[in-house]
């Protein structure tokens, strides 16, 4: 079985570690809080969040920032559950 993109332990790389400190932006905190609120409401749990993240196409996963992966996952999981219609978020964004 081919190794999944999220399974990074020992992944061959000699990239240096960027230790720049980053204060979370408002939208990042909001995204985190949405997952928390969805969890408390019993709509979506942390394991589902992870499964959604891990379902990202490999190149998208590597390109995306941390909370962009979360946003992707929320949309995938909530669409799967029928809470969002397919493409609904994109339609709302273009309104």
């Amino acid at each position: 079985m081919e190794r999944a993109v999220h399974d990074r332990g020992g992944w061959p790389t000699d990239a240096s570690i960027d230790r720049t400190e980053h204060q979370l932006a408002d939208w990042e905190v909001l995204t985190d809080a949405l997952v928390g609120a969805l969890g408390r409401a019993g709509v979506m749990n942390v394991d589902e969040l992870r499964r959604g993240i891990e379902s990202m196409p490999a190149d998208e996963y590597e390109r995306a920032s941390y909370y962009e992966r979360w946003l992707y996952s929320i949309e995938v999981i909530l669409t799967e559950k029928g809470i969002l219609a397919g493409g609904e978020l994109d339609r709302s964004l273009s309104e």
């Binding site: 932006a25 408002d26 939208w27 990042e28 909001l30 995204t31 949405l34 969805l38 409401a41 709509v43 920032s65 909370y67 962009e68 946003l71 929320i74 949309e75 909530l78 809470i83 969002l84 609904e88 978020l89 709302s92 964004l93």
Partner: peptide, 17 residues
């Protein structure tokens, strides 16, 4: 992504999720 997150919040609140 910032606008996406805010729009997602609006949608989920409007749907009472």
């Amino acid at each position: 992504a910032a606008r996406r997150a805010r729009t997602l919040e609006e949608l989920l609140v409007a749907k009472h999720v």
